[in-house]
Simulated scan of single mutants.
Amino acid sequence: MSSSKSQVCYADAARLYCIIFLVLIVLLGSFTNNEYLIKKMNPEVGNACDEIYVVEEGETLHTISDKCGDPFILEENPHIHDPDDVFPGLVIKITPSGVRN
């Protein structure tokens, strides 16, 4: 009989610790920077780029936009007349979406 009582006691303690752990996770999640977490989980998305970016071999405006987090590259670079005519060495201005007003 006492073995049964100790098993119930351990189960109650384990349940309590799990509840406390889950509450802590929820609280910590509400205080963290979500953009930081997204970058940590997927380092290819939204990496910070310098304001002046030099196109590398094989890059497109779409891949640069994804890499740098700037969906308006074409609008900010009036010297690019054809979005398909992007070549290595082309210099473009980058403004990450989080910096916009």
Rank of each mutant, 00 (worst) to 15 (best):
D50P: 02
G58A: 02
T60G: 00
I52C: 04
S6G: 08
F21M: 07
F31W: 12
S97M: 10
G29R: 01
K5Y: 14
Y10T: 15
E75I: 09
Y53G: 00
V86D: 02
E76F: 12
C49R: 04
E35I: 10
N42T: 07
I92T: 05
V99A: 14
I20W: 12
N101V: 14
V54A: 04
Y17L: 15
P78A: 06
G69F: 08
E76L: 14
I19W: 11
I73H: 02
N33F: 07
I94L: 05
H62I: 09
T32H: 11
I94K: 01
S3M: 15
P78Q: 01
K5D: 13
V54E: 05
R100Q: 01
G29A: 03
S97Q: 12
V8E: 15
M1Q: 13
G98Y: 15
V26G: 02
E76V: 07
I20R: 11
N33V: 00
I38W: 06
P83H: 01
F72E: 11
G98Q: 15
G29S: 05
N42S: 12
I73R: 00
I94G: 04
I92G: 02
I80F: 03
T32Y: 12
K67H: 06
A13L: 11
E51T: 10
I73F: 03
K93S: 10
I64A: 01
N77R: 07
D50A: 09
P88W: 08
D70V: 00
H81Y: 14
N33I: 03
A11E: 13
E51I: 08
N42E: 12
I73D: 05
V45E: 11
G58Y: 00
I25M: 08
G29K: 02
L37N: 04
N42H: 13
I25T: 04
I80W: 04
D70A: 08
C49W: 06
E44R: 13
I38N: 07
E76T: 12
C49G: 03
S65H: 01
V86C: 03
V91Y: 03
T32R: 10
L16S: 09
K5W: 14
G58V: 03
M1L: 13
G46V: 00
S4W: 14
N77A: 07
H62E: 13
G58N: 05
K39A: 06
G89E: 05
L61G: 01
L28W: 10
M1C: 12
D85C: 10
G98T: 15
N33C: 09
D70Q: 06
L37C: 08
A14T: 08
D50E: 10
V91N: 08
I38R: 07
V23A: 08
L74Y: 01
T95I: 06
M41H: 14
I38P: 06
E59G: 04
V26N: 09
Y10V: 15
I19S: 13
C68T: 02
S30Y: 10
P96R: 01
L27T: 09
V23E: 00
L90D: 11
V54M: 03
V55A: 02
S6L: 10
G89V: 05
V8W: 15
C9M: 15
N101C: 15
V45M: 12
P71V: 05
I80P: 00
E56P: 01
